[in-house]
């Protein structure tokens, strides 16, 4: 039981770490990576909690969810990357400029 909790806590740790990075880093690539770390954290939680008992076979449903989640995350990352390149092309910056459009 304990190492299941350990994995789950590790997942939560990754989530928090990613959130922290997302907030403090300005560079868009780092932000995108941070989001991915957070996602991985959530997936880890899902997979870890799927093992309800140490001996019983794990619950398949969270695995299905994780696979779906990974597909979604890959497409989101692709969109984020292309958008980042476009922002760079349009503004010459790899950061979001603050404030409102003028």
């Amino acid at each position: 039981m304990s190492y299941i909790i350990l994995y789950a806590l590790l997942g939560v740790g990754l989530f928090v770490l990613g959130l922290y990075a997302l907030i403090i880093h300005a560079h868009l690539l780092r932000k995108i990576l941070a989001i991915n770390v957070m996602g991985t954290g959530v997936f880890l939680v899902l997979v870890a909690l799927a093992a309800r008992h140490q001996d019983a076979p794990p619950d398949p449903v969270p695995h299905a969810m994780v696979i779906t989640g990974i597909v979604v995350a890959v497409s989101a990352t692709a969109l984020a990357l292309i958008l980042m390149l476009k922002v760079y092309a349009a503004t010459g910056k790899t950061e979001l400029h603050d404030g409102k459009p003028d």
Partner: peptide
Amino acid sequence: GADALNAAMRYLLVSLLGSL
């Protein structure tokens, strides 16, 4: 345009964060 792309990027990050 820069404004729209900028807004879209921010929107994407917020959206992904919320979903997670």
